[in-house]
Design a protein around this nucleic acid. Structure first.
Lengths: 140, 140
DNA sequence: GCGCTGTGTTTCAGGGGTAAAACAAAGTCT
DNA sequence: AGACTTTGTTTTACCCCTGAAACACAGCGC
């Protein structure tokens, strides 16, 4: 009596999607945990496909992925291929580098890029004078 | 610490919808149980808004109602989700949290996110030093 | 009356999901 | 080298969701 109804939530697909997105963005499990509200331990289990996350956590993650929940139900749309190529260049964030990156960001207007660049230049000068540690924190 | 993350699943709305549909069709709880695979007891709890159903049961019921799952979520915009996602989880803006949010922002390049994160960290440190001296981590 | 059926609700033991913390491995400083 | 941080994983204790069964009430026929 308990088995004519199969599970509808495709946990593996969700786990793969979260893992892929997380790696694309270069985030740690705790980063995603801070953003989504799903704990790192639960996140680890989801990415490894063990167990079934509850509804709230599924909602949080599909919301973070910006993907409709129907996507993680069994037998729906095939997923679209990678839409967001991300290349990561860990560099020393000198004002020159930052300015170049800001100018290259097509999501910012030139005015915004200039303002942020100038703001960063001032802050960087202040920071460099009051501290001897490297202002960069490289990640992989 | 985990408080700023509210529940996303609107159980009351789901319960009302199921109850309305069930009465429209003149079905008993056990009738719906036989059709959907959700037990009558669980169905009773859902209609009365008690507790939070798991993902499978939500999926079964939304499928039975023929209603998109987003309907029973709060804080999601199924249509207009394109460029301006809502901030669902306001948090204490420590540099770690801000960095996580920025790096998770798919509208920013990783370089821009890093630059803004660094900028915020510098400003935050400056502010913390001049004001209340509230270190964010176990820095001794 | 008495039994029977159907209804929604509640109890119950079991299972399993959760977040925090502890953990080991790897990296990053000094 | 050592100490410290960061990473993903696993352990831990708690919480609660689940379905079956028991329950209380109603309606109906005999």
């Amino acid at each position: 009596m308990t088995r004519p109804f199969k599970a509808l939530v495709n946990t593996e697909e969700l786990g793969r999607a979260v893992h892929r997105r997380r790696e694309e963005l270069g985030l740690s499990l705790r980063d995603v945990a801070n953003v989504t509200g799903v704990s790192a331990s639960t996140l680890s289990r989801i990415e490894n496909g063990t167990g079934k996350p509850d509804a709230d956590n599924i909602a949080r993650l599909t919301s973070w992925l910006d993907v409709p929940m129907e996507r993680i139900l069994s037998g729906r749309h095939p997923q679209s291929a990678a839409a967001n190529p991300v290349v990561y260049y860990p560099q020393e964030p000198t004002p020159e580098i930052v300015e170049a990156h800001l100018r290259a960001d097509r999501n910012l207007t030139p005015e915004t890029a200039s303002a942020l660049s100038e703001l960063f230049r001032v802050a960087y000068a202040q920071f460099s004078r009051t501290s001897n540690e490297k202002p960069t924190k490289k990640r992989r």
